[in-house]
């Protein structure tokens, strides 16, 4: 009887020690799921999902707060990947979400007054300029998030859709026209 108690107590102590040790040793900093979700999001930092950036949205998805269909720049492709990762059903975009072609911002230099408001809004530092100096978009860094459009007091920023060229061209899914048998 006593030996049984001692054995059980011994096992409990050993297992407890192992658990306690591994809790300290293999502790995971942060939620790895958030990183995985963040890696799928397109990083435009546009806030169209209702969260201030891609990472906050990823955190919201991970905690189950937000739906996976709120990222227009990610497209349906993005929703599919999120659905795959989280093991949930694919959901189409909610009403009111408009998918736009890829675009970059353009500053009309005749109108710009050098107020610096747009580059304070830019999440990726893609606008060059200084107070009372002309501002300009660094097109290769612009993610097309449109966050700079609203703050501009003189409405000098417009979104220019990107035209397809030889370097960005993608092959279409093969489609073959059916021919009636003779």
């Amino acid at each position: 009887m006593l030996s049984a108690l001692l054995v059980m107590a011994g096992i409990a102590i050993v297992l407890g020690a192992v658990l306690g040790y591994s809790a300290v040793k293999f502790r995971v900093e942060g939620n790895p799921l958030v990183d995985k979700i963040d890696a799928i999001l397109p990083q435009t930092q546009c806030g169209q999902c209702g969260y201030p950036g891609c990472r906050p949205y990823a955190e919201a998805i991970a905690s189950g707060e937000a739906d996976i269909n709120r990222c227009p720049p990610g497209g349906e492709e993005g929703i599919r990947k999120l659905a795959d990762l989280l093991g949930v059903e694919f959901k189409p975009f909610g009403g009111g979400t408009v998918l736009k072609p890829k675009a970059v911002a353009f500053i009309d230099e005749n109108l710009c007054i050098g107020c610096t408001l747009c580059f304070q809004a830019c999440p990726v530092d893609a606008i060059a300029g200084a107070a009372k100096q002309m501002h300009t978009i660094i097109a290769s860094e612009c993610t097309g998030c449109e966050l700079c459009v609203d703050p501009c007091p003189v409405d000098c920023i417009s979104m220019v859709p990107l035209r397809e060229n030889i370097a960005t061209w993608k092959r279409q899914y093969p489609v073959f026209t059916l021919v009636a048998a003779k």
Binding site: D38, L41, P42, Q43, T44, Q45, G53, V124, A126, T143
Partner: peptide
């Protein structure tokens, strides 16, 4: 290419 662009944007956003 899209993935590279997203990674680049993430880096720039984090740096900002």
């Amino acid at each position: 290419q899209d993935q590279r662009a997203a990674d680049h944007a993430r880096e720039r956003h984090e740096f900002r």
